[in-house]
Write a protein that binds this DNA or RNA. Structure first.
Lengths: 238, 238
DNA sequence: CCTTGTCAAAATGTATGCATCTTTGGTTGA
DNA sequence: TCAACCAAAGATGCATACATTTTGACAAGG
């Protein structure tokens, strides 16, 4: 096999690239994009041929992804794509609600930096503009997803806890599309969520940790409810 | 190197043993026991010589432990034992409080199985007997630790959520001894904690999820407080 | 028909050699 | 003197060969 090319000198601030790390990223995206069937067995040799590397970096990537909960591993019996039942996803939302609540409380207690505030305020404004429309296109919904992520990420950052951030990432990283986790929100739902964001941010600015936590918990719990509602609608069609 | 011995046929229900897995366990214990200095660099070759295996299973073990948050990893620059500041530990308690609260709530909502109830009730009785004494020996404290773990583990199990259990484990698995995290509890503290356990269990039996959550959160938060108190006492001696 | 045993193919586990990167210490040049 | 620069040593990354385990097919026996 050809030797690994030297990293270019001119790139100023690049991520370190080892095969193992980039393969980990590739596989993670594939799994989260639902490109593997839930429960599907993952064969090292397959992947190593597909990705044109030896089994070594593949094995390391699989170990990492198993640690992240994306794969199940049984010694001598390989890896399987982890299956998430509806109940698993509901549990993940409950966990996320508890953790996001804590993050919001900490953000309120510790205060948000100027940059963090700027990000949230810009996102709130953008959301305002977007939700003025009388109907949301698919692209609009996508756009709101980005806004939503910006707000939550800023609050996570303000929580100033690496462990908390790590766990939040894990609780959100649950193969979403594989279970059509994309909840069909009504426009009114989105507006309500956006209003939640406003209130949560206000509570944080007021340094009211208790209120920020309560609001955030309910905010996330309500997504869980929507999920349950949309599922029960699917199961009992009208 | 000598070939790996076949697994014995007679052992009925043994854990699967690969070098990689058992080394992972060994290293995890060592780290948690504080046998490495915080921040210390971990060299693959060192370990492979000490443990008399090749670098391959070592590398896999290190990947897993990094995933568990016990090690920091930088590509091409190896692994370091993760350092936990006092603040990190406090954050871990906050996370644990949120998660244990959720576990207690779920246990109340879902109910505890007969076995789980038996475990808790036995532990509560044992605690009763232990705390009757007027003074606790070091062995007694140790014993109460086991009782405490039994109660909490039973509640975790009753929560019926793998993700929740995994995260709880992670939030508790923070090199305790390396930071003399062993809080010097007064006997009255321990009695109070034991009383907490009684009330929490009652709330769970009554299927009062809200109360169970509240009590459990406060229960864990109070340990955080004790930690902070004992630290500030250390820093300002009298 | 189901069970059990055997064996070969296939998959994972481990050791090892080489490639690449980091680090370190000394050297050179301003 | 100090900084930039090499070169060698040391450490990690990756490929590969071989060892071990699992699995599935097939045959023999109940």
């Amino acid at each position: 096999m050809a030797p690994r090319p030297r990293r270019s000198i001119s790139s100023p601030e690049d991520e370190v690239l080892t095969r193992s790390v980039s393969i980990t990223d590739t596989l993670r995206s594939s799994i989260l994009a639902g490109e593997f069937k839930p429960g599907e067995r993952i064969y090292e040799v397959n992947l190593s041929e597909q990705l044109d590397v030896s089994r070594t970096p593949i094995r390391e990537a699989l170990k990492v992804l198993a640690g992240e909960g994306l794969l199940d591993y049984i010694p001598n019996r390989g890896y399987h794509v982890r299956e998430y039942s509806v109940d698993d996803i509901v549990q993940a939302y409950e966990i996320r609600a508890a953790l996001e609540g804590l993050a919001a409380k900490r953000a309120a207690q510790l205060g948000m930096s100027a940059e963090e505030r700027a990000i949230v305020e810009a996102a709130l404004r953008d959301g305002e503009a977007l939700l003025n429309k009388s109907r949301l296109s698919s692209e609009d919904r996508n756009q709101y997803g980005i806004i939503n992520t910006a707000i939550h990420s800023a609050i996570h950052a303000a929580g100033q806890s690496r462990m908390l951030r790590d766990m939040l990432r894990q609780s959100q990283q649950i193969a979403p599309s594989s279970h059509r986790n994309v909840i069909a929100f009504e426009l009114s739902d989105v507006r309500r969520r956006h209003d939640d964001h406003h209130r949560i941010y206000e509570a944080i600015l007021c340094r009211d940790g208790g209120r920020a936590e309560l609001l955030m918990r309910d905010h996330v719990e309500s997504i869980k409810i929507s999920l349950l509602r949309s599922i029960s609608r699917d199961l009992l069609p009208r």
